[in-house]
Design a protein around this nucleic acid. Sequence first.
RNA 1: GGAGCCGUGGUGUAGCCUGGUCAACACGCUGGCCUGUCAAGCCAGUGAUCGCGGGUUCAAAUCCCGUCGGCUCCGCCA
Length: 588
Amino acid sequence: MRTKYSVRTHNCGKLSPKNVGEQVILAGWVQRRRDHGGLIFIDLRDRSGIVQVVSNPVHGTEAFNVARKIRGEYVICVEGKVAKRPQGTVNPTLPTGEVEVIARDIEILNPSKTPPFEIESGVDVDESLRLKFRYLDIRRPEMLRNLKLRHEVVTKVREFLNKRDFLEIETPILTKSTPEGARDYLVPSRLQPGRFYALPQSPQLFKQILMVGGIERYYQIARCFRDEDLRADRQPEHTQIDLEMSFVTQDDILQLVEEMMVEIFSLLDIDLKTPFERLSHQEAVERFGTDKPDLRYSLDLVDISDIAFQSEFKVFTNAIASGGIVKGIRVPNCASLSRKEIDELVESATAKGAKGLSWMAISENEVKSPIAKFFTPSQLEEIVDRLEAKPGDLLFFVADKREVTCEILGYLRGELADRLGLMDPLQFKFVWIVDFPLFEYDEEEGRLKSHHHPFTVPTEDSLPLLDKDPLAARAYAYDLVVNGVEIGGGSLRIYDRKLQEKIFKLLEISPEEAERKFGFLLEALEYGAPPHGGIAFGLDRLVMLLAGCSSIREVIAFPKTQTATCPLTGSPDIVDEKQLKELHIRRR
RNA sequence: GGAGCCGUGGUGUAGCCUGGUCAACACGCUGGCCUGUCAAGCCAGUGAUCGCGGGUUCAAAUCCCGUCGGCUCCGCCA
């Protein structure tokens, strides 16, 4: 019996009436033990599922004695016969509920301490405890399901891209720090005193170099590192589905990705309609107040500046006079919202940076609002018409600079949708955001900053704008957004050294710095670089959406806490002085 | 760097506002009974000085300050 587990014949969860009569050897963990005194039931669990084992002294005296000692999470091996359950004892909630295994022999392979929390679905346990005992947490069905789903997504992606002639190629983890972007994780070099590697924020430059290397189609399931603060959807290391192609247009890439998404979502029997909706960056911001809109609900933002300017309401007219706008949002059937609820919304908008938030409640023949007195009846009617408001609707208005107005209302839009339960968790609304600005203005640094990254190619008609009005320049850049979550983004890249240098110059990266940081790329561009472009997806976010979770930690085997620590291993940790010395590092 | 919420036996919570049987409930765990349960049942028992430190008070889980940890968010994340 010592090594019987090595000849395990079946998986627990796979047993069915078809196996009745068969002699089987199972191995797994004890989910639960029900001791009836003269008869003991054991729910035996392995990765495939659970099956009930019955230990009756009649069928195995020794086994019964062992069964009495068994406790939860013991690892055991059971030999016995599969039997149909007696009439009236079938468990319809268990896939294997029609059968049970009559134990002839039971061996305890390894006992277990009582786990610090119950290993079952739907636990509500402190997350840091789950993470400290992640190996127990992973035994829970939800975690197993999520990790399995993640595996299936990755498998699907590989199949899909392999079929389309992509090569999976690894790029270095120990690489070079680059300016711009997120804070790098640094790794001190032992052999080169005083020098540091950086962990990659993405394989961006390597994949472009691979294109220059004639690979034409590359992908990688790539780990990426960013030393920034964490969120529910942000970890210091995350995994990207990274791909790059030569000789393609933006449309080629978008189309390929759509096909890939169809494949991925077919895993959950979800039929995605292609092509996905496309919104220009500008339209997204104007209509939804964000570049990652959740299109499961409408609540569009509507400009009423022209009407508002005619009113007597100083807040509105002043905002417009100083170059701002007034926009509104219509919330259906919410005129009955209590004053307290409205005040809460006003407060949250103010917390977001709004100077104020005006509202109007629409009823059959009047507009109830603290600001109604500043408007003529016909102006009010125009506003109602413009927002297509119906009796029972509630309207909110913000007056400020264009960007601020859109941002606040965009935030309010999400807040309202959440409160009103407009986010259908079973629906997946894909949208491409395209025509991104090439640059944005960095107030802090007082200079231009790449909206996507410095290697993104401007559209042809933007080229003349680079010198005149760079902020008006558009890029061949695109984001894929699902239900308000940005799951991927990419661009066509610059493959001309002169243009790349020009962009660096506009970003106020000196030729010396450009040479030092990106010299190898600039040089590569001079040796027959093909036109190319690509995209990268946040695998964790994608799987999170598919799994219906609200944090990527649920789909990562060993995630970090908000303070970037690992309760399981205790990393990060102090190291020996000897190690530091070898690395030429002195602590302050 | 900032804001908010949380921290009570192994787990999840109640108690906290209105200081004084202040430690309760469920699950778990241990033992006993029990041959058809599957969240088994019944009986008995075990177990927390209330994250930590300080303060107020005759008296603090309860009020105040600080601190640590977890989570959410802002900043940050090309």
